[in-house]
Protein backbone atom coordinates (compact mmCIF):
# COMPACT_ATOMS: atom_id res chain seq x y z
CA UNK A 1 0.00 0.00 0.00
CA UNK A 2 2.86 2.36 0.89
CA UNK A 3 4.60 1.94 -2.46
CA UNK A 4 1.28 2.15 -4.31
CA UNK A 5 0.37 5.42 -2.58
CA UNK A 6 3.80 6.92 -3.14
CA UNK A 7 3.61 5.90 -6.84
CA UNK A 8 0.29 7.75 -7.16
CA UNK A 9 1.47 10.89 -5.38
CA UNK A 10 4.85 11.01 -7.14
CA UNK A 11 3.11 10.56 -10.51
CA UNK A 12 0.80 13.48 -9.75
CA UNK A 13 3.88 15.52 -8.95
CA UNK A 14 5.35 14.42 -12.28
CA UNK A 15 2.28 15.54 -14.20
CA UNK A 16 2.35 18.88 -12.37
CA UNK A 17 6.06 19.27 -13.10
CA UNK A 18 5.47 18.57 -16.79
CA UNK A 19 2.76 21.22 -16.84
CA UNK A 20 4.91 23.80 -15.08
CA UNK A 21 7.90 23.18 -17.33
CA UNK A 22 5.87 23.62 -20.51
CA UNK A 23 3.37 26.29 -19.46
CA UNK A 24 6.07 28.50 -17.93
CA UNK A 25 8.22 28.28 -21.04
CA UNK A 26 11.17 26.81 -19.12
CA UNK A 27 11.14 24.06 -21.73
CA UNK A 28 10.17 25.16 -25.21
CA UNK A 29 8.79 22.73 -27.73
CA UNK A 30 7.98 23.79 -31.27
CA UNK A 31 4.23 23.16 -31.60
CA UNK A 32 4.31 22.83 -35.37
CA UNK A 33 6.29 19.66 -35.91
CA UNK A 34 4.03 16.79 -34.98
CA UNK A 35 6.09 13.70 -34.22
CA UNK A 36 9.20 15.59 -33.03
CA UNK A 37 7.05 17.56 -30.61
CA UNK A 38 5.60 14.37 -29.12
CA UNK A 39 9.04 12.77 -28.95
CA UNK A 40 10.23 15.78 -26.92
CA UNK A 41 7.23 15.55 -24.57
CA UNK A 42 7.90 11.85 -23.97
CA UNK A 43 11.59 12.56 -23.29
CA UNK A 44 10.73 15.32 -20.83
CA UNK A 45 8.23 13.07 -19.07
CA UNK A 46 10.79 10.27 -18.78
CA UNK A 47 13.36 12.69 -17.33
CA UNK A 48 10.82 14.08 -14.87
CA UNK A 49 9.72 10.59 -13.79
CA UNK A 50 13.34 9.48 -13.32
CA UNK A 51 14.19 12.69 -11.44
CA UNK A 52 11.28 12.14 -9.05
CA UNK A 53 12.38 8.61 -8.09
CA UNK A 54 13.98 9.95 -4.85
CA UNK A 55 10.56 11.37 -3.95
CA UNK A 56 8.99 7.96 -4.63
CA UNK A 57 11.54 6.31 -2.32
CA UNK A 58 11.16 8.98 0.39
CA UNK A 59 7.35 8.81 0.39
CA UNK A 60 7.47 5.00 0.44
CA UNK A 61 9.57 5.20 3.61
CA UNK A 62 7.14 7.68 5.18
CA UNK A 63 4.07 5.58 4.35
CA UNK A 64 5.77 2.33 5.40
CA UNK A 65 6.33 3.77 8.86
CA UNK A 66 2.62 4.55 9.18
CA UNK A 67 1.02 1.65 11.06
CA UNK A 68 -2.44 1.97 9.51
CA UNK A 69 -1.12 2.06 5.94
CA UNK A 70 1.16 -0.88 6.66
CA UNK A 71 -1.79 -2.89 8.05
CA UNK A 72 -3.99 -2.12 5.03
CA UNK A 73 -1.08 -3.06 2.80
CA UNK A 74 -1.00 -6.54 4.36
CA UNK A 75 -4.72 -7.21 3.93
CA UNK A 76 -6.20 -9.69 1.47
CA UNK A 77 -8.57 -6.93 0.38
CA UNK A 78 -5.65 -4.74 -0.73
CA UNK A 79 -3.95 -7.66 -2.44
CA UNK A 80 -7.15 -8.39 -4.34
CA UNK A 81 -7.42 -4.75 -5.46
CA UNK A 82 -3.76 -4.85 -6.49
CA UNK A 83 -4.43 -7.91 -8.65
CA UNK A 84 -7.41 -6.27 -10.37
CA UNK A 85 -5.46 -3.04 -10.82
CA UNK A 86 -2.62 -5.04 -12.36
CA UNK A 87 -5.06 -6.70 -14.78
CA UNK A 88 -6.50 -3.28 -15.64
CA UNK A 89 -3.06 -1.82 -16.30
CA UNK A 90 -2.10 -4.72 -18.57
CA UNK A 91 -5.40 -4.21 -20.40
CA UNK A 92 -4.68 -0.53 -20.93
CA UNK A 93 -1.21 -1.27 -22.31
CA UNK A 94 -2.81 -3.78 -24.69
CA UNK A 95 -5.47 -1.23 -25.66
CA UNK A 96 -2.81 1.21 -26.90
CA UNK A 97 -1.58 -1.54 -29.20
CA UNK A 98 -5.13 -2.55 -30.20
CA UNK A 99 -5.96 0.98 -31.30
CA UNK A 100 -2.86 1.11 -33.50
CA UNK A 101 -4.09 -2.05 -35.23
CA UNK A 102 -7.73 -0.93 -35.40
CA UNK A 103 -7.68 2.81 -36.04
CA UNK A 104 -4.23 4.11 -36.91
CA UNK A 105 -4.09 6.23 -40.06
CA UNK A 106 -0.37 5.54 -40.52
CA UNK A 107 -0.98 1.80 -40.30
CA UNK A 108 -3.58 2.06 -43.06
CA UNK A 109 -1.25 4.21 -45.18
CA UNK A 110 1.54 1.63 -44.98
CA UNK A 111 -0.93 -1.16 -45.71
CA UNK A 112 -2.26 0.61 -48.82
CA UNK A 113 1.27 1.13 -50.13
CA UNK A 114 1.99 -2.56 -49.55
CA UNK A 115 -1.25 -3.61 -51.28
CA UNK A 116 -0.60 -1.51 -54.39
CA UNK A 117 0.59 -3.40 -57.50
CA UNK A 118 4.02 -1.72 -57.57
CA UNK A 119 4.25 -1.21 -53.82
CA UNK A 120 4.61 2.52 -54.28
CA UNK A 121 2.08 5.30 -54.48
CA UNK A 122 1.91 9.03 -54.99
CA UNK A 123 -0.10 11.09 -52.54
CA UNK A 124 -2.97 11.39 -55.03
CA UNK A 125 -2.99 7.61 -55.55
CA UNK A 126 -3.08 7.14 -51.79
CA UNK A 127 -6.13 9.39 -51.50
CA UNK A 128 -7.87 7.38 -54.23
CA UNK A 129 -7.56 4.12 -52.26
CA UNK A 130 -7.94 5.78 -48.86
CA UNK A 131 -10.55 8.38 -49.59
CA UNK A 132 -10.35 11.55 -47.53
CA UNK A 133 -14.07 12.27 -47.52
CA UNK A 134 -14.95 8.70 -46.53
CA UNK A 135 -12.42 8.89 -43.71
CA UNK A 136 -13.91 12.18 -42.58
CA UNK A 137 -17.50 10.87 -42.68
CA UNK A 138 -16.52 7.69 -40.81
CA UNK A 139 -14.87 9.73 -38.07
CA UNK A 140 -17.92 11.98 -37.71
CA UNK A 141 -20.22 8.94 -37.65
CA UNK A 142 -18.06 7.45 -34.89
CA UNK A 143 -18.35 10.66 -32.89
CA UNK A 144 -22.14 10.70 -33.38
CA UNK A 145 -22.43 6.99 -32.48
CA UNK A 146 -20.38 7.64 -29.35
CA UNK A 147 -22.82 10.35 -28.27
CA UNK A 148 -20.31 13.20 -28.54
CA UNK A 149 -22.09 14.98 -31.37
CA UNK A 150 -25.57 14.97 -32.83
CA UNK A 151 -26.88 15.93 -36.19
CA UNK A 152 -29.35 18.78 -36.57
CA UNK A 153 -30.30 18.94 -40.23
CA UNK A 154 -27.10 19.62 -42.13
CA UNK A 155 -25.29 20.79 -38.99
CA UNK A 156 -23.27 18.89 -36.45
CA UNK A 157 -23.47 20.04 -32.86
CA UNK A 158 -21.57 18.85 -29.79
CA UNK A 159 -23.57 17.11 -27.10
CA UNK A 160 -22.69 18.08 -23.50
CA UNK A 161 -20.29 15.09 -23.49
CA UNK A 162 -18.65 16.30 -26.70
CA UNK A 163 -18.45 19.87 -25.43
CA UNK A 164 -16.72 18.63 -22.28
CA UNK A 165 -14.15 16.67 -24.32
CA UNK A 166 -13.64 19.66 -26.60
CA UNK A 167 -13.23 22.02 -23.64
CA UNK A 168 -10.74 19.82 -21.81
CA UNK A 169 -8.72 19.02 -24.95
CA UNK A 170 -8.70 22.66 -26.00
CA UNK A 171 -7.47 23.73 -22.54
CA UNK A 172 -4.77 21.04 -22.50
CA UNK A 173 -3.51 21.97 -25.98
CA UNK A 174 -3.32 25.64 -24.92
CA UNK A 175 -1.53 25.07 -21.59
CA UNK A 176 0.88 22.50 -22.99
CA UNK A 177 1.43 24.49 -26.20
CA UNK A 178 0.61 21.59 -28.49
CA UNK A 179 -0.81 23.65 -31.33
CA UNK A 180 -4.04 22.73 -33.12
CA UNK A 181 -2.89 19.14 -33.75
CA UNK A 182 -5.37 16.51 -34.83
Amino acid sequence: MAYFLSALITSLAGIAAHGILIASGLVRIDPDKSILKLKRHWQILLIVWAALLPLFIYLSGVFNSCGMIARIGQSAWFFGMAGITFLGMLFFVYLTFYYVVDRSITTRLMMEIERSPEKRLTFEEITKVYDLDTKYRNEIQGIVDGGFMRREGEYFVNTPKGAAVAGITSWYKKVFKLGPGG
Binding site: S34, H41, W42, G142, I143, F156, A166, T169, S170, P180
Partner: peptide
Protein backbone atom coordinates in the same frame (compact mmCIF):
# COMPACT_ATOMS: atom_id res chain seq x y z
CA UNK B 1 -0.58 13.59 -24.48
CA UNK B 2 -0.58 11.77 -27.84
CA UNK B 3 -4.39 11.48 -27.80
CA UNK B 4 -4.81 15.15 -26.92
CA UNK B 5 -2.41 16.16 -29.67
CA UNK B 6 -2.99 13.81 -32.59
CA UNK B 7 -6.44 12.34 -32.23
CA UNK B 8 -8.82 13.29 -35.02
CA UNK B 9 -12.07 13.14 -33.06
CA UNK B 10 -11.23 15.64 -30.28
CA UNK B 11 -9.98 18.07 -32.94
CA UNK B 12 -13.29 17.79 -34.77
CA UNK B 13 -15.18 18.41 -31.53
CA UNK B 14 -13.00 21.44 -30.84
CA UNK B 15 -13.77 22.86 -34.29
CA UNK B 16 -17.49 22.56 -33.62
CA UNK B 17 -16.99 23.97 -30.10
Amino acid sequence: VVVFDRSVTPRMMIEVY
